[in-house]
Nucleic acid binder design. Sequence first.
DNA 1: ATTATATTTCTATGTTACTAGAATTATCGT
DNA 2: ACGATAATTCTAGTAACATAGAAATATAAT
Lengths: 145, 145
Amino acid sequence: MKRRIEQLSALGQEERLAIFRLLVRAGPQGNCVDQIKRRLKTPGSTLSHHLDTLTRSGLLSARRAGRFIHYAVNWREAANLIRFLTEDCCAEMHARFSPDPQTGAGVGNPCCSQAAKRPRRTRRAAAASEKAEARTSSENGNRRP
Amino acid sequence: MKRRIEQLSALGQEERLAIFRLLVRAGPQGNCVDQIKRRLKTPGSTLSHHLDTLTRSGLLSARRAGRFIHYAVNWREAANLIRFLTEDCCAEMHARFSPDPQTGAGVGNPCCSQAAKRPRRTRRAAAASEKAEARTSSENGNRRP
DNA sequence: ATTATATTTCTATGTTACTAGAATTATCGT
DNA sequence: ACGATAATTCTAGTAACATAGAAATATAAT
């Protein structure tokens, strides 16, 4: 749980998210610091701190190859993070936000599109949302009143 | 993109993540501030700031009902955030981190389990990872060398 | 050994975020 | 109109984070 918070806040920063996305695309071999530095044009010391933050969160792992240190995405942890969010939200989304239970289309979330085809709405969830949705159904309108 | 960063960093904070999780479980009706306050025992002003941060990020929406203001999860944005992470990572995971392409089991990520059954490995991805994985296959070992 | 390159740690500074009491605004009930 | 309750904004102190130059460390090449 604390780990998830660290990971979310690690990704919740422009430069670190850019690093992470770069490394996702770099694949399992990753990139050495110098490559990242040249691509993102970040000063070495700053980059090093960001890499440390991402590594301590578990999202990256580092391996030395001679003078170079390659940072790569730790896929297992990335999957765990997505699962964490999915389990907290996606299950609810399937139950409550499936715009067309017949086709499963509408959410447009590849993470959900498969599962949404068979509405997984539990008895409990259905009852709860029924009661709740009876009164108001906003689901939009963003700003504070 | 900037929005995604705001959302990730909004969730990357203990108290705000707790609020978000509470509201996920509260369903579409959400909870009014006072309910949240009593459950999480947060001082009003602090809570108000956190709710504002989450709302500005788009993850929550607020609706007034008399004296009460109900905050609820904005499922659409939550889905978008998960999709964002999924598209950046999950596609790569399917291609590179499917431990058993035959059964699709192993990752244990409900977000991926469906899709993993049909390995989506592209020609490009296969070639790239082949070349890369030839040398080293760490995929573990967390700390900096 | 010496020099060059890769990366990190040290150090410092500015900025942003968190926290929470007090004052304020808004709405309801009487 | 008035008091009570819900929630936000004001204000301010502290802590944490981001940035980056300079010094230090580690490895490789000559």
